[in-house]
Amino acid sequence: MDSAQLLGITTFTYLFSSLLYVFLLVFNTQRLARVATGFTAVALAVQTIGLILRWVESYQMGIGRAPLTNMYESLVFFAWSIVALYLYIEWKFATRAIGPFAVPLAFFAMAYASFAGSIDKSISPLVPALQSNWLVAHVVTCFIGYAAFAIAAALGLMYLFKTRDQANTASRTTLLPPLPILDDLIHKTMIFGFIWLSVGIITGAIWANSAWGTYWSWDPKETWSLITWFFYAITLHARYTRGWNGDRLAVLALCGFASVLFTYLGVNLLLSGLHSYGAS
């Protein structure tokens, strides 16, 4: 068994676990809940082993680096963070119904990583600029932040879904947490993401300073991460001082995630810049 196979399997287990969660929601079968959670936990474990194995393999190839340094690996880690964070929230807040909205995001990330033609999956050595521990810190912190924003968006979607649904077929959304709890959860995951994104931007700046002598050069990727950061700062202010919550917060969570996706993928695909992920 090598890491590529394990990570390949993960893609399909996340698909299956997404389907389980959707099934759970549509047919309102509480009994399946445990199965879905258990299955997702196993999928996460498989992916964790896959990531560790990839790390070990890089040492066996004489390259020796953390599996966090190109587009493929960042997507895999993104999916990993989403599911890990999701399972934590499920456990901590004893709510299972976020799954149908959050786990598919992990599946999409894995599927995009595995099947997009432009993404190189091989373990290649690092160019000099990427040989830095700050890079590892930067990627890890940014993607924990991104994963939190992904879940906030999933919760936002769920919130909108639930308010729209309440009028007619209430039965289908009884599994979803009550609206005030959802609202609180959106706020909490956003805060969590905001802090990690802050640390991510800071570690990125430190890395840039040790490699090039400027901690901030307004390159498109940096600028977009700052725009995203501002967006969430504005959202938190609007909620705290102007009482924007409920539907508005849900919509902002979705818009914020759009900004995250643009920072992560759009900048590479549409704009030019220093960051190497786009090239791979």
Partner: peptide, 10 residues
Amino acid sequence: IALTSIIGTV
């Protein structure tokens, strides 16, 4: 600041 920053990325 967020909106005008976009100009420099385009």
